[in-house]
Write a protein that binds this DNA or RNA. Sequence first.
DNA 1: ACCTGAACACCGTTCAAGT
DNA 2: ACCTGAACACCGTTCAAGT
Lengths: 211, 211
Amino acid sequence: MRLDREQIVAAALRLLDEVGVDGLTMRVLADALKIQAPSLYWHFKNKQSLLEAMADALIAPVARAVPPGSWAEQVSFIAWELRAALRSRRDGARVFAGTFSINDNVIRTADHLIGVLMAAGLPRQKAAWGALTVTYFVLGFTIEEQGAYEPGGSEGVALAARREEFTRFIGDRYPHVAACIPDIFDGDQDARFRLGLEMQVAGLKVLSSAS
Amino acid sequence: MRLDREQIVAAALRLLDEVGVDGLTMRVLADALKIQAPSLYWHFKNKQSLLEAMADALIAPVARAVPPGSWAEQVSFIAWELRAALRSRRDGARVFAGTFSINDNVIRTADHLIGVLMAAGLPRQKAAWGALTVTYFVLGFTIEEQGAYEPGGSEGVALAARREEFTRFIGDRYPHVAACIPDIFDGDQDARFRLGLEMQVAGLKVLSSAS
DNA sequence: ACCTGAACACCGTTCAAGT
DNA sequence: ACCTGAACACCGTTCAAGT
């Protein structure tokens, strides 16, 4: 009957899908757990550390087992897994980005990434920095991707409204952006991610050949 | 004597350097302006729209005049300008990332970027998506860069403490990360940015040759 | 060991009223 | 047109007290 940290984190992640990160307050979470808000402070020293535990749980599945293949395939595999993990909950990417936390799961992911790049022949520093760069890409992409669709339940409507406002704002002052509106708004997110990821991998390749 | 939006935004940006984005409340801002908090709502419909105006002002200098050069040089120029603009205020990158706002300055930057890439021969969709990818990199990099140094005035100490905690946490379980600690913590930020940016440009190059 | 009740010091925001 | 005073419905967090 008594709660432990694991159950609280699980409930918090479930709630995240319902209310989003801005709606996830200590009182709302306590209500869902049928306890009082101050009780949460017995398990977590503050809200930030609860969010860190949530971020940790969120990316727990990432880079557990990387299948054999070229280094480019392995980097891509981890990047796809990371995006999938962040997308698995509403506002997942924002929750993760908000915690600069050092936890097992994030380190394991970094370790895999750096290891793959070093095995590919990158010098240590370039492997480390290259791994960080790929991670920033995945995180930035996913934050934006989740931000575009989220505000309220009726996603399609909100997106259409945003597109119209955007089109009106552009007018004819910014011809390049205007021409790209279909790409920005209809774009297949998976295809867009694939292209961005190809850019990162190509960049890593150049880093390795320039040694 | 009476205030307008411009003066409020300027004061808010000044305050940002003192108190950070988490300390920038409507009451604190009102105090600095020697008015009462509710008065701010005559000028801005809510805090979000004030933050959007701040983000707009923050990147106003970006991509105003792009010097002649190869497309790779021009993309790099804009990326360096964007990072500099975000870094010009404490938490600048977080303020910017928090507003998914459509404003003149952000569109002008995107328009320049897409225009340069299309002139370089990229098809429209790849130019649009490539421009977004570069932007995510700059934003992600700068958020992390500012996050590492900020918590409280005594930056050097906080960083050293973080490094020690990090080293202890890693132990010998993650050899690749352990070997990279100097790169992650001593790293020259400009050099790291340069490398990440080179990756983006190399990726764009591959996109254009693969057409 | 785990939880409650009451309280503190804040938030963003609304709104009638002032000048 | 611009600002104030008072208030509302919240926050995160502390702390003594309960079981």
